[in-house]
């Protein structure tokens, strides 16, 4: 089995997939895939569980357990490529698609670039747009203080 060459790129795409909306991921997969799911072998079937989220006292101090978040994980193999998924929520199909994408993104450049352009890039762009829109709404509620200058002359 082959290793992904660049773990920072893989971290990025796995993070994007983990936070994707299930419907959106499905739509992009359907538009981009070429029947690769036919060659899927399960290494670990989708499993729903939780991850304990930690915070820090004062944001920077001692760690404490804040509460759990629901997460679904699975592992697949396509040809020589192993794909893993840890995704937010309880949608097993989302986990399956995320693992498929992870496997194919490590495959030969043509396939990897198709998945990247067809699925990862749009998900990233949409997330950035959502963030920017929320930030713009927040900015519209920013309080502007005025200093009142007394006329002395």
């Amino acid at each position: 089995m082959k290793q992904a060459s660049d773990s920072s790129a893989r971290q990025e795409w796995m993070s994007v997939l983990a936070k994707a909306q299930p419907d959106r991921l499905l739509a992009l997969w359907q538009a981009t895939s070429r029947g690769e799911e036919q060659r899927l072998t399960w290494l670990r079937a989708p499993e729903i569980g939780t991850v304990m989220v930690q915070g820090r006292a004062g944001g920077t101090g001692e760690a404490f357990n804040l509460g759990e978040v629901s997460v679904t994980r699975c592992s697949v193999q396509i040809d020589a490529w192993v794909g893993h998924a840890y995704v937010q929520g309880r949608d097993k199909n989302k986990a399956r698609l995320a693992a498929l994408c992870d496997a194919l993104l490590q495959a030969e450049p043509e396939t990897a670039s198709r998945i990247n352009t067809g699925i990862i890039a749009p998900l990233q762009a949409e997330a950035a747009k959502r963030r920017a829109q929320t930030a713009a709404k927040a900015d519209a509620t920013k309080v502007e203080f005025y200093t009142l200058v007394r006329g002395e002359e």
Partner: peptide, 10 residues
């Protein structure tokens, strides 16, 4: 639910 692990502090 099983617990898969613990996050890094947010």
């Amino acid at each position: 639910l099983p617990r898969f692990g613990t996050s890094l502090p947010i």
